[in-house]
Amino acid sequence: MGGLRKLGSVAIEVVWQLGFIARFFWLILVYSGQSFTRLNLTIRELYFSGVLSLLIILVSGLFVGLVLGLQGYEILQRYGSSDSMGTMVALSLLRELGPVVAGLLFASRAGSAVTAEIGLMKVTEQLKAMDMMAVSPIARVVAPRFWGGVISMPLLAAMFSTMGIFGGWLIGVVFIGIDDGAFWSQMQAAVDFRYDVLNGVIKSCAFGVAVSLIAVFQGYDCVPTAEGVSRAITRTVVSSALAILALDFVMTSFMFRGL
């Protein structure tokens, strides 16, 4: 009986939370006018979320590409088709690894920072003070951070994939000695712009919206204490990761059915 009641209250809690997020999302969209008419606010956040995440994205992309190169060669040569390594590396990055791994990195690097910043502004009453000064914190603080993340995410995923492909090329062509021409021409022949590249971009945009929304919401909604902020940061990273992986599964099942 107690267990059932607990389950029920958790379910109600989750539904409430989703309702709050949906309403919050709507408010962000309503108040977004300012983020675009006063572009410098959003550009600042683009710098903090995007530019400052660049290093970790590029380095991680390179390593993922290097590993893909090693594993890909090892598997493909069993079937005597090591020339298709470029194709394999490019497709795995563009369709899956680019958006997903970049999204996970983005959530832990930029998402957590956004949650911490907004949460601390709440703790120190900066949001209330802003509201008392007749300036909407959603318009001034939340919306620019949201859009900064939404715009950064696909660009970071694209750079991740680019670095990954470069890493695969380093292993395949430079170290192992696959034919340079075969590497690129097979890739070019096999990768379809709409089917592979565009779908990957759509994924990374969706992840950008999900991570940014979760990050600003958790910050804005946190319990205004030190402990509350630290919990909110954890929740941002955990729920972003879950959201990315779940969304990825759903979108993959619609996009790539291998028909």
Partner: peptide
């Protein structure tokens, strides 16, 4: 918001934008 523009509130801990 129009009314609050004519009000000023000093918060307990200042609430300066850090």
């Amino acid at each position: 918001y129009a009314m609050r523009r004519r009000m000023g509130m000093l918060f307990q801990f200042g609430a300066l934008f850090t």
